[in-house]
Computed example of a mutant assay.
Amino acid sequence: MLYNALKLAHVLSIVVWIGGMVFAHFFLRPAAQSLEPAQRVRLMHDVLQRFLAAVSVAVVVVLASGLWMIGRVARQAVQAGGSFSMPLDWTVMATLGLVMMAIFGHIRFALFRRLQRAVAASAWPAGGQALASIRSWVGVNLALGVVTIVVTLLA
């Protein structure tokens, strides 16, 4: 029962993370392009502030639940007298997940801070540059997330 609850929390956290990136990248950002730079940068800042806070929680849930589920399966294998060898799809999922978390950390703690400073200073060109960097890294993370899902479901 606990395993299923953790797996549900794991998947729902990934839905928030990947779904939010899809929404921001393909729907919000293109729609915001019609706004004046000051309005666009402020809007994206405010949206990203909320989204990055939610993803921070999601990352913790994904990491903790993933480690717990792997540990539980490994412990059961050893207790049954066998050995544990992590399946290839789990290895790919865990590796790409850790890379995605590192990229998220860069977005959250470096690039978003640049955006915050630009908004505080009303430096709209600098804010636009920060948003462009965020967009690029979100694109990378989105691609990694999709690859992770494909590998996990098709392996």
Rank of each mutant, 00 (worst) to 15 (best):
F112N: 02
V147P: 08
A120C: 05
R75F: 00
M101Q: 13
Q116G: 13
K7L: 05
A32G: 06
I70C: 00
F51P: 03
A64R: 06
A123N: 06
A102G: 13
M101N: 13
H45Y: 07
S122N: 09
I18K: 01
L2Y: 12
L115H: 02
V99Y: 07
A74D: 00
F104I: 04
A120R: 13
E36W: 02
M100C: 05
R113N: 13
A9V: 12
A102T: 06
P37E: 02
Q49P: 07
T148M: 15
L48C: 05
A123L: 04
D46Y: 10
I107P: 00
G105A: 06
M1A: 15
L111R: 04
S133I: 08
I149C: 14
T152Y: 06
V59M: 07
P30I: 09
V146W: 15
R50N: 07
M101V: 15
Q79D: 08
G127N: 01
M1W: 12
A132H: 07
L67H: 06
H106T: 10
V99M: 10
F26R: 07
L28S: 03
S133M: 08
S83A: 08
A132F: 05
V61A: 10
I14A: 15
A110M: 15
F51D: 06
A118F: 01
A130L: 08
V16K: 09
A132Q: 08
G128F: 10
L8A: 14
V146H: 14
Q49V: 07
A143I: 13
A102P: 01
V78P: 02
I149M: 15
V62M: 02
S133A: 09
H10F: 04
F104K: 05
I70Q: 01
Q116F: 05
L8P: 11
G19A: 09
A143Q: 05
D89W: 14
V119H: 09
H45T: 05
V92L: 12
F23N: 04
R117Y: 08
H10E: 03
R108W: 12
S34I: 12
I134R: 00
N4R: 14
A5T: 08
G105R: 04
G66F: 00
A132E: 12
V146A: 15
V55G: 01
F84V: 00
T95W: 13
T91C: 11
D46G: 07
V47C: 04
H25C: 05
S136Q: 12
S122E: 11
W137H: 00
L154Q: 09
S85D: 11
A143V: 14
L111Q: 02
S13G: 15
R42K: 11
M1Y: 15
L67S: 03
A118M: 01
R50Y: 08
N4T: 12
L8I: 10
D89Q: 15
W68L: 10
